[in-house]
Structure formats: structure tokens, C-alpha cells
Amino acid sequence: MTAVAVPATRARARVVRPVLVRLGTSVLVLWGAVTVAFAGLHLTPGNVVDLLIGANTVTPEVRARIVADYGLDRPLLVQYVTYLGRVLHGDLGQSYQLHQPVASAIGEQIGSSVQLMLASFALAVVVAVTVAVLTAGRRWARAVFSGVELVGISIPSFWAGILLLTVFSFGLGLFPATGGEGVESLVLPSVAMAIPVIATLSQVLREGLELTLEEPFVLTARSRGMSDLGVRLRHALRHALLPTVTLAGWMVSYLFGGAVITESVFSRQGIGRLTLTAVTNKDLPVVMGVVLIASLLYVVINILLDLLYLAIDPRLRGA
């Protein structure tokens, strides 16, 4: 049965179909996010124009333009379709508090946040893989790190950030306490943000490694005289990675939310700060724009993950 050659077209269909399904779901998720944003605006008590303007005062002309832009004098369904159409064209609306389009406000800030998220992500993966590879199946190391990981999961990231600041900036003076200039300013925030991710990731990774290390092929590799570390890195790690990759979507989500807190603790510029200011000032167009961007990011990451699965696990490619 298993030896039957699969025609090339069918093999391709097997790869293409899940990707198409994923794309369909993604469109649905994005549409849902737009709808959530729209519903949020209209379920809020009060005049929609006032909500969009926020705490500002504007001229009657601007008011009239908002009504026209959003079609606020038209039936709700028309308004919804108008809103959908605008978002589809990449128009996230106008922030009347920042006096600039939402898209450009986000564009200005997203770079420094992406830096922070990438640094944090890279740190988390490197540390988690190292810890998991070194501690899997080793009784004492494992017991100690399990305890450390429990603490890492429980510690709120803003407190981790405050502690790092207290020790390394105020106490030892090693790193700047605030600002976003240079690599040094990236160290403490990315560590603070990475802690819970490291703790979660290394737990899952170690569990996967321990399961794999009992597989017969590991015994085979060992019997060929391969070193213990070699077996872990060359054979066990690839198998243990698969469940971890599933977590990557959660990680991106987590880092996005974490940016709001971490940027606030370290007084860094970025999309998190932008969001927090917008929430505090009731600048709804900006908040809705960020929600849509986050949702888009989630969707893109998940599509990339599907492709990554294929790269990690050859069994998913053909049959």
C-alpha cells in the first residue's frame, strides 16, 4: 500500500489544499476582526462622530467630512460596507487626536516594536532550546529548571521589567533605563518580554525531547557511537520542534501584547505605546487600526508556520 507511487498532481494537491483552506480561514479571521472593530464603534453608547474624534474639538467642516467619509448619515449596512471597502484599500481612517492618518501613525511606530519583538523572539528561542537540550532527561538539572520555569511563567512581565531596571540600570548602571537608542537599550526590554516565552517554550520542548529520546532510532544512533549531545541535536531536536512550532502563533500574539506593557515600563517608542496612549485618550480609530494590524500579523504568521511544518517534517510533504 505505502509503496504505491503518488501521481505528481495529487501530491501537489495534498500540499495546496491545506494552504487554500488556511487562506480561506485567514480571510474569515480578518473579516471577523474588521467586524469586531466596526461593532465596537457602533455598540459604544454615544455619537459615533464624537467617538471618532475622541477628546478633541474639531471644526464643523471636519465633522461634516467624517460623516461623509464613514457614511454616517446612511443605513448601518451601507456604513459597514463603506468601512469594509476602506479597510480593503488599506485606509485605516484618520486619527483626529494625532492629526494624521492611522496607517502612517502606525507605520512610524511599528519599526521599533518589531525590533523589540524580534530580539525577544530570538532570545527566547536560543535560550529555550539550550535549556531544553541540556536538561531533558537529566533528573537534577530538570528538577531545578522546572522550578525556575514555573516562576518564569508566573511572573508578570511588567514586574520582571521593573526588577531588571532596578538591578541593572539603577543599581549597577549597566544599561540605560529609558529610551530606544542603540543596542544597549534593547537588552533589558527584550529580556523582560522573553522570560514567560522562554519558560513556556523550554517546557514544551523538553517534554518533546524526552519523548523522542526513548524512540528506537535514538538507540540506533547511540549504538553507532554518536555522542549524547550529537543525538540530542541531530536527531531528537527536529522531532521535538514540531509541537513547539504550533506555539509560535501564540508567541507572536503574546509578544504583541507584551510590547504594550514593556514599552510602557521602559518608556520606549513603539506601537505598544501608541496603543496605550490611544486607549487612554479614547482615540478609537488608532485602537481599531492596531487591532486590524495585529490580526493581519497573526494570519501571516500562521500561513508561514504551515510552510515551516512542511520544511521540518518531510512526512507532511508527499503522502
Binding site: 471577523g32 469586531v36 500574539s253 501584547g257 487591532v291 497573526y298
Partner: peptide, 12 residues
């Protein structure tokens, strides 16, 4: 849809 959004962002 709700799970696709970062939790904290949904709260915000």
C-alpha cells in the same frame, strides 16, 4: 476571531 487577537489587545 477572538483567539486570533493578542489577548491584551482585545482587553484594550
Amino acid at each position: 476571531v477572538l483567539l486570533s487577537l493578542p489577548g491584551l489587545l482585545l482587553a484594550l
